[in-house]
Amino acid sequence: MNDGQLINLARQARNHGFSVVLNGFGENDGDTQKRIAGINAACCGQAGPEWRIHPQLFRKFQVAEVPAFVLSKGDSSAADTFSKVTGAMAIPDALGIFANKSKLQFIRMAANQKYHNAMPETEN
């Protein structure tokens, strides 16, 4: 993903209370931390989202392409504990897919609640 996409995703993650999980980028942790700081500064000033460098989660949830959105119950990788959506989209769009298409009822319910919280109020 390019920095523009990451800035947009970081802004959305911060606004909706989600973490951004990275498999990693750069040659070392210093490069990664500098890039995260730059993305946070561009999107959110000093109040960016939580970032986690966690390649094990990529393996656990079988993330082969990014962006990927995962909702899970705990840290288990059992098929009945998480749902995943991949592709370039906004977080509310991913939540809508989870809410309408996840095979797991607890994921549909959690996504539905988060989706309605993520949608702006409409004026009557």
Score class of each variant (00 low, 15 high):
residue 1 M to F: 14
residue 1 M to V: 14
residue 1 M to A: 14
residue 2 N to E: 13
residue 3 D to P: 01
residue 5 Q to C: 08
residue 7 I to N: 01
residue 7 I to S: 05
residue 7 I to K: 08
residue 7 I to C: 05
residue 8 N to T: 15
residue 8 N to L: 13
residue 9 L to G: 07
residue 9 L to R: 07
residue 9 L to C: 03
residue 9 L to A: 10
residue 10 A to E: 14
residue 11 R to F: 11
residue 11 R to C: 13
residue 12 Q to R: 05
residue 13 A to I: 00
residue 13 A to T: 04
residue 14 R to A: 12
residue 15 N to V: 11
residue 15 N to D: 15
residue 15 N to F: 10
residue 17 G to Y: 01
residue 18 F to I: 03
residue 18 F to K: 04
residue 20 V to Y: 02
residue 20 V to P: 07
residue 21 V to N: 00
residue 21 V to S: 02
residue 22 L to F: 00
residue 22 L to C: 06
residue 22 L to E: 03
residue 23 N to A: 08
residue 23 N to M: 05
residue 24 G to F: 05
residue 25 F to N: 13
residue 26 G to I: 06
residue 26 G to F: 06
residue 26 G to T: 00
residue 27 E to K: 15
residue 30 G to M: 10
residue 30 G to S: 12
residue 32 T to E: 14
residue 32 T to A: 15
residue 33 Q to D: 14
residue 33 Q to H: 14
residue 34 K to H: 10
residue 35 R to C: 01
residue 36 I to H: 02
residue 37 A to W: 07
residue 38 G to S: 11
residue 39 I to P: 00
residue 39 I to M: 03
residue 39 I to W: 04
residue 40 N to V: 14
residue 41 A to W: 07
residue 43 C to E: 12
residue 43 C to G: 14
residue 44 C to M: 02
residue 45 G to H: 09
residue 45 G to D: 08
residue 46 Q to N: 11
residue 47 A to D: 14
residue 48 G to S: 04
residue 50 E to G: 11
residue 51 W to T: 04
residue 51 W to K: 01
residue 52 R to H: 09
residue 52 R to F: 08
residue 53 I to H: 06
residue 54 H to M: 13
residue 54 H to I: 11
residue 55 P to D: 03
residue 58 F to H: 02
residue 59 R to D: 09
residue 59 R to W: 07
residue 59 R to K: 12
residue 60 K to P: 00
residue 62 Q to P: 04
residue 62 Q to F: 02
residue 62 Q to V: 02
residue 62 Q to G: 03
residue 63 V to W: 00
residue 63 V to E: 00
residue 64 A to W: 07
residue 64 A to T: 08
residue 66 V to W: 05
residue 67 P to C: 06
residue 69 F to C: 02
residue 69 F to V: 05
residue 70 V to E: 00
residue 71 L to M: 05
residue 71 L to Q: 04
residue 73 K to N: 12
residue 74 G to P: 01
residue 77 S to H: 05
residue 78 A to S: 12
residue 79 A to H: 08
residue 79 A to Q: 09
residue 80 D to L: 01
residue 81 T to Y: 06
residue 82 F to I: 03
residue 87 G to M: 01
residue 87 G to R: 03
residue 88 A to E: 14
residue 90 A to F: 09
residue 90 A to Y: 08
residue 91 I to Y: 07
residue 91 I to P: 09
residue 93 D to E: 15
residue 95 L to W: 00
residue 95 L to M: 06
residue 95 L to H: 04
residue 95 L to R: 03
residue 96 G to R: 12
residue 96 G to C: 09
residue 97 I to R: 10
residue 98 F to G: 01
residue 99 A to D: 03
residue 100 N to F: 06
residue 101 K to A: 13
residue 101 K to Q: 15
residue 101 K to S: 14
residue 102 S to M: 10
residue 102 S to T: 10
residue 103 K to W: 06
residue 105 Q to Y: 12
residue 106 F to K: 08
residue 106 F to S: 12
residue 106 F to R: 09
residue 107 I to K: 06
residue 107 I to Y: 04
residue 109 M to C: 11
residue 111 A to T: 01
residue 113 Q to Y: 13
residue 113 Q to G: 13
residue 114 K to V: 10
residue 114 K to N: 12
residue 116 H to P: 06
residue 117 N to Q: 15
residue 117 N to V: 09
residue 117 N to R: 11
residue 119 M to E: 14
residue 119 M to P: 09
residue 121 E to I: 11
residue 122 T to P: 09
residue 122 T to C: 10
residue 124 N to L: 14
residue 124 N to F: 15
